[in-house]
């Protein structure tokens, strides 16, 4: 395929992904908006004022970046895992596998589909948060870089889950038992400085902590960890998951017998 044909193929995959999540917006865009609004109401307006300041900010100002990031993570992951597994389950993935589209274009297309949904939901949540608090944006480039790379990372993770999944149960196990606990314990609702030193150290094994804090640094200018290290960790995970995803596309028995 020529470079132009590859570009057309990529745009085709991305367009199909975007149309899919827009077509089923009551399942994809509405629920995170409602959930996050409830978070803002409960943790921001009702409980937040009783908690007081955290790292020099009101509680709602502190949790807003974490809640945005949480939406981006779960929706990037959820989009790719459900779309790719759905295509595998319904066999429509064969349309792609028999075509001349190179594996890296297939992967990039699905990942960018996940990024499109993750960032769309992130934008919706950000706009909703403006009804409850005033958002700051200390470092625009860092904020955008972190949210984009995090979305890429979890889209890749969703892809890997989808390749291994053998049933619809398998695509909900990781989000429920791995992603949600790691996100909740990843500094969305609190600063790790509040934890006893042992649990503070353990928290540093959680990769989501780095993403949430780097994003919070971009917005508020505060972080529990070094932003440079956070970016290195995110990029490192992306590279590792990309290589593994490409390996799966070449060899997985879940795709080609």
């Amino acid at each position: 395929m020529s470079s132009y044909e590859k570009w057309v193929a990529f745009v085709t995959i991305l367009t199909r992904e975007v149309r899919r999540f827009v077509r089923i917006w009551p399942q994809t865009l509405l629920p995170p908006a409602i959930t996050i609004t409830l978070y803002f109401i409960i943790f921001g307006t009702l409980i937040g004022p009783r908690i007081g300041a955290m790292s020099g900010f009101t509680y709602i100002e502190f949790v807003a970046p974490g809640l945005i990031m949480m939406s981006v993570i779960t929706n990037s992951y959820g989009n790719v895992v459900s779309s790719f597994y759905g295509a595998k389950w319904g066999k429509s993935v064969e349309e792609l596998l028999v075509s001349p589209v190179p594996n890296y274009i297939i992967l990039t297309g699905f990942v960018m589909g996940g990024v499109a949904r993750g960032l769309s939901v992130g934008l919706i949540v950000t706009l909703l948060s403006l009804f409850f608090t005033r958002l700051q944006l200390e470092h625009v480039v860092i904020t955008c870089t972190v949210v984009f790379l995090t979305s890429v990372l979890f889209s890749l993770a969703g892809f890997i889950n989808a390749v291994f999944a053998k049933s619809f149960d398998d695509i909900s196990i990781v989000p429920t038992f791995v992603l949600t606990p790691l996100t909740y314990l990843g500094g969305v609702f609190y600063s790790t400085s509040l934890l006893p030193s042992f649990w503070g150290t353990v928290s540093h094994l959680n990769p989501i902590l780095y993403m949430v804090n780097a994003f919070r640094y971009g917005m508020l200018g505060i972080s529990d960890i070094d932003t440079g290290i956070a970016l290195l960790i995110i990029v490192g995970f992306i590279l590792a998951l990309w290589v593994f995803s490409m390996h799966l596309l070449r060899t997985s028995k879940g795709l080609r017998s």
Partner: peptide, 15 residues
């Protein structure tokens, strides 16, 4: 219609 247009896109045909 969408299925065919998408499939053609996989082969690099402009929209």
């Amino acid at each position: 219609l969408d299925i065919l247009v998408t499939q053609a896109g996989y082969y690099g045909l402009p929209r």
